[in-house]
């Protein structure tokens, strides 16, 4: 499974530019599902036919990144955020464009108090010698993502874009496992989650499932002096209770808990004070689609090195397989 994860995290895909990820997943699932299609927003929808309930599983393909807004006369790039980018987190990071161009993020050194730093006061240096030089490599409107590897160490993964390639990997793994079920399963790899849960809404509208699960990451409360939160990595996948976008439908939540208990799958509960998931836009689609979520506890979310535990990932696969059966 690490192989799948590794391939997914190494593929370029900021919001609105999910094509490469979609192509990769399409290749992985060819022959394993009955139908594969895409829609106007670029969602990839893989269907395993069945006669029972229509169940939508959603994991978003897009990752956070930056977008170039201006190239100056010396070849430095000004940029804005695509999704939630903290200026302190991106400071000093390497970013990479779709064509492989690497840049380093730095800031105007006369800003005074570093605490007041904003993205507008930062720039990307792609080692260009001039404006023309820079424009050969990058255009205004191009996006870039964190440049960082994926490491498996001590049963845990350190990588960029665990949010939400780990969810994509879980869906891919389930689809490959081909769990026996009467239900019709929609493996939906959504676009543009990080900029406002956009893809999931139109995908859900097209599918009109009976119920939906969003598979995404959640923050944890297990690092030094962090805000209190009852989620730890390694303690099992987290069943979504609430985030900023949704309160899980009680029947979905209860069904997940029942599945976990029956199959002895370790699990915990997610109440996310900040941030939302695709479940938020799915559950208000059309006349309402009962939705919930399974979240992988993840440290340092929206950073170039997010950390998850492989056991949680494997248990999430088991839990969701039990859910859709």
């Amino acid at each position: 499974m690490f192989n799948i994860i590794n391939k997914l995290t190494h593929t370029f895909g900021p919001s609105g530019n999910e094509k490469k990820i979609a192509d990769l997943i399409r290749d992985m699932l060819k022959g394993k599902v009955d139908e594969i299609k895409t829609d106007a927003l670029g969602n990839l929808i893989c269907i395993k036919k069945g006669s029972g309930k229509k169940i939508m599983l959603a994991a978003h393909m897009d990752e956070i990144g930056i977008i170039v807004s201006y190239i100056d006369e010396k070849g430095f790039l000004r940029f804005s955020n695509v999704g939630g980018i903290n200026p302190f987190v991106i400071l000093g990071q390497r970013v990479v464009f779709e064509n492989g161009t690497v840049g380093v993020v730095w800031y105007e050194e006369n800003i005074g108090d570093i605490k007041s730093i904003k993205l507008e006061k930062m720039y990307i240096d792609i080692a260009a010698k001039s404006q023309a030089d820079a424009e050969r490599l990058v255009s205004v409107g191009d996006m870039a993502v964190f440049e960082s590897g994926t490491i498996l160490q001590n049963g845990r993964i350190i990588s960029k874009s665990m949010d939400d390639r780990i969810g994509c990997a879980i869906l891919v793994q389930i689809a490959l496992n081909q769990p026996r079920t009467e239900n019709e399963i929609y493996y939906v790899f959504t676009a543009q989650e990080e900029v406002g849960l956009r893809g999931a809404r139109t995908a859900a509208y097209g599918i009109m499932p009976d119920m939906a699960l969003a598979v995404d990451v959640t923050t944890t409360g297990d690092t030094p002096e962090c805000k209190p939160m009852s989620v730890r990595i390694g303690d099992g996948p987290a069943i979504k209770i609430k985030d900023r976008s949704v309160i899980a439908h009680p029947q979905i939540k209860d069904r997940l808990i029942k599945c976990a208990e029956e199959h002895n799958i370790p699990h915990q509960f997610e109440i996310l004070v900040q941030g939302g998931t695709d479940a938020g836009s799915i559950h208000t689609t059309a006349g309402g689609i009962p939705s919930g979520g399974v979240a992988i506890p993840t440290r340092n979310v929206h950073n170039s090195a997010e950390i998850v535990d492989m056991k949680d990932v494997e248990n999430a696969v088991k839990l969701i397989e039990a859910f859709i059966r």
């Binding site: 106007a40 969602n43 977008i67 205004v140 409107g141 956009r198 509208y205």
Partner: peptide
């Protein structure tokens, strides 16, 4: 020209999210 700032919103956002999605 390209608009060089990312601020603001237009009807495009609302239209794109309609139904099964609009280009």
């Amino acid at each position: 020209q390209f608009k060089k700032t990312i601020s603001g919103g237009t009807n495009a956002g609302r239209i794109q999210a309609g139904g099964t999605g609009v280009k």
